[in-house]
């Protein structure tokens, strides 16, 4: 129990440190800029929109921005005000492009899309990658293992955007099997709509799966290979345990533990990859929202989406960390 509590305590602490550092960087960044981002923004807004921004509206936007960046009051006050907005009231102000729609509403609409895409692609890539990596590591001196590992090496270092482009070129142009951008009509959920969603999400999901698949294959391959040299695997072999059982009950059960930790740690970069992919495929998630926020100069929306990204990554990481003891009895018991 002591081990477990210790573990729990450490994970929770890490969770708060992640939030603290992430939020603080977001808080400090605009303050380190040489020019005032609000003035920049207002200039650009008036320049581009030009039209009906009354002095009243400008003042209101300035106030909202000022609060968002917390430019009023002392630095400490500003910081706590910001924290309160993020964690207590979930209020990122109104969207400046879709004024006066609140940012949180837009985020709530986009979040399930990103969550779904991430969940499906991350789990698929993790399971598939670990299975292939396990087989490649367990039968490391067979020819097919080398082929599988080479596959991982060829896939892993390639950036998301390259996969996105290559998939677009192949599956949307050369063999037009899948749509180039995401088109799903709003409306009630029907069977046809679900099919549509899957069909439209296929290429972005495949992009994410491919990159993470490569990473998991390589990680698991070397773990399975080194686990195979452990005393308990040798002993199991000398006990006459069948190879398949050794692979699953001995090698996989042990080698999967560092892979769980590694998944938790790499969620941030996976999320980053998901954002890139969403932007390239116009998938209607947080990434797309971020992109439109950038092109519209919608600072409130941008800050909102980025803050939610960091919070979401921190929570998902904590969730995986809390699942970890299920797989490792050494933390669960005594």
């Amino acid at each position: 129990m002591k081990n477990f509590l210790n573990y729990l305590w450490q994970r929770l602490l890490t969770f708060f440190v992640v939030l603290f550092i992430g939020i603080s960087v977001l808080f400090l960044l605009p303050r380190l800029m040489p020019s005032d981002p609000i003035d920049n923004y207002l200039q650009r807004l008036q320049g581009s929109a030009g039209q009906a921004l009354t002095g009243e509206q400008v003042a209101e936007i300035r106030k909202a921005l000022g609060e968002m960046y917390g430019i009023q009051g002392s630095l400490i006050d500003q910081y706590f005000g910001y924290l309160k907005r993020v964690f207590v009231s979930h209020d990122f102000g109104p969207s400046l492009a879709a004024y006066p729609k609140p940012v949180s509403e837009l985020i709530n609409l986009a979040l399930p899309w990103t969550f779904g895409l991430m969940l499906v692609s991350t789990i698929t890539a993790w399971l598939l990658g670990n299975l292939v990596g396990l087989v490649a590591g367990f039968f490391h001196n067979r020819k097919f293992a080398t082929v599988l590992e080479t596959l991982g090496i060829l896939i892993y270092p390639i950036p998301y955007y390259i996969f996105a482009f290559v998939l677009i070129i192949f599956f949307a142009f050369l063999i037009p099997a899948f749509p180039l951008t995401f088109v799903v009509m709003p409306g009630p959920v029907t069977f046809q709509k679900i099919v549509d969603i899957i069909y439209n999400s296929f290429l972005p999901a495949l992009t994410l799966i491919l990159v993470n698949f490569g990473w998991n294959v390589l990680g698991m391959k070397s773990l399975a290979y080194s686990t195979k040299e452990e005393g308990y695997v040798l002993y199991a072999r000398l006990k006459g345990v069948k190879p398949r059982r050794i692979m699953y009950n001995y090698v996989a059960r042990n080698a999967i533990l560092p892979q769980i930790t590694s998944l938790a740690l790499s969620l941030g970069s996976i999320f980053g990859g998901a954002l890139i992919t969403e932007m390239l495929f116009s998938y209607p998630g947080i990434g797309m929202l971020m992109r439109s926020a950038i092109s519209n100069g919608d600072y409130n929306l941008l800050y909102g989406t980025i803050t939610i990204t960091i919070v979401a990554v921190a929570i998902s990481t904590l969730a995986i960390d809390l699942l970890y003891p299920l797989f490792d009895p050494r933390i669960r018991h005594r």
């Binding site: 452990e230 005393g231 308990y232 040798l234 002993y235 199991a236 000398l238 006990k239 006459g240 345990v241 059982r245 009950n249 001995y250 059960r253 042990n254 533990l257 797989f327 490792d328 009895p329 050494r330």
Partner: peptide
Amino acid sequence: WFKKISYIPQSSMSSLNPVVKIRKQFLD
């Protein structure tokens, strides 16, 4: 192996699968 000829290793810590109960290691 283990039915007619068996083997007792020197290190019990590293010879038992750390994530599986002893019961299972008697049954596999």
